[in-house]
């Protein structure tokens, strides 16, 4: 690894489709840098699965790799089939918050429960970006979106905490203002097994920022930085105050037997029983 890092070595020669200032660019950079620093000079040991949405376009077809761009919300089931039949490949899922914890929520919970050996990177822009700015399960309370013109009357979901509750081996949340931490989280996750979840709070200047009163993408990223607190810092705050903040850090890191381990053990046992 003498060459300097360049995202180009991992990307097809295509123009990326994202709006100027979109957080997707930051996510791509951080992810590929982590891949590089983990010693992968290409993506031949990876398979990417994604759903439908702007964030689901991150790997597909832009990464020079195998990528399966599935249906809205269905990347995790497809990743399940891929991983079970090709246990030696690194299966990484990319998706938006609507894709992963809106329409695809049940798959997310069950994959964490099974401790399926995949890394899920959820780009949480707090909005349905691709369809033009509708309320998402992650949209902050009182936010105006095209389908909540008087402000959202629902409270957002804490996806990282849910991953912990459901049984993930790893769960972390960072923002696009935490590029280094994000990259390190990806590196750590790539070394681990089981269900690993990284939530990246990200800016969608087009469908969220404008309506929420941000001048531009830069202002959003600065807001992420100022408004983030660590998990430790939440100890001194009440629930209401925490809800106004973005809690960043690692929520869990553990080694529970993974689905690949348990399912292949079961196959071995079934074959032994047969022989007797």
């Amino acid at each position: 690894m003498t060459e300097a890092f360049s995202v180009k070595q991992y990307l097809r020669d295509l123009k990326l489709p994202f709006c100027p200032g979109c957080g997707a660019f930051t996510v791509i950079n951080a992810f590929l840098k982590a891949v590089y620093e983990s010693g992968y000079t290409d993506l031949s040991k990876f398979v990417f699965c994604s759903g439908i949405g702007c964030s689901s376009w991150i790997p597909s077809p832009y990464f020079k790799a195998d990528s399966i761009h599935t249906l809205h919300g269905r990347s995790i089931p497809v990743a399940t089939g891929v991983k079970l039949m090709r246990p030696n490949l690194n299966v990484v899922v990319f998706g938006g918050d609507g894709d992963i914890v809106g329409i695809g929520l049940s798959h997310f919970i069950h994959a964490a429960r099974r401790n399926l050996d995949v890394l899920v990177i959820m780009v949480n822009n707090m909005i349905y970006g691709m369809t033009g700015g509708q309320v998402a399960p992650t949209t902050p309370f009182k936010t105006k979106t095209t389908t909540t013109p008087y402000g959202s009357f629902e409270h957002p979901l804490d996806a990282a905490k849910l991953a912990v509750t459901a049984g993930a081996n790893y769960a972390a949340r960072w923002t696009t203002a935490h590029q280094n931490e994000l990259k390190e989280a990806v590196k750590k996750a790539l070394e681990m097994k089981g269900f690993r979840f990284i939530e990246v709070v990200s800016q969608c200047p087009t469908a969220f920022g404008r309506r929420a009163g941000f001048k531009d993408a830069g202002e959003m990223v600065r807001w992420f930085k100022v408004n983030s607190i660590t998990i430790k810092q939440t100890k001194n705050l009440n629930e209401e105050d925490i809800a106004k903040k973005i809690v960043v850090g690692e929520f869990i890191q553990k080694r529970r037997p993974t689905l690949i381990e348990t399912i292949y053990n079961t196959i071995k046992e079934a074959q032994k029983t047969e022989e007797n």
């Binding site: 699965c49 599935t70 995790i76 089931p77 497809v78 399940t80 089939g81 891929v82 079970l84």
Partner: peptide
């Protein structure tokens, strides 16, 4: 979905 994934994995 899982069947489709498995198919792309060669099964």
């Amino acid at each position: 979905g899982a069947v489709i994934g498995a198919s792309w994995a060669g099964a």
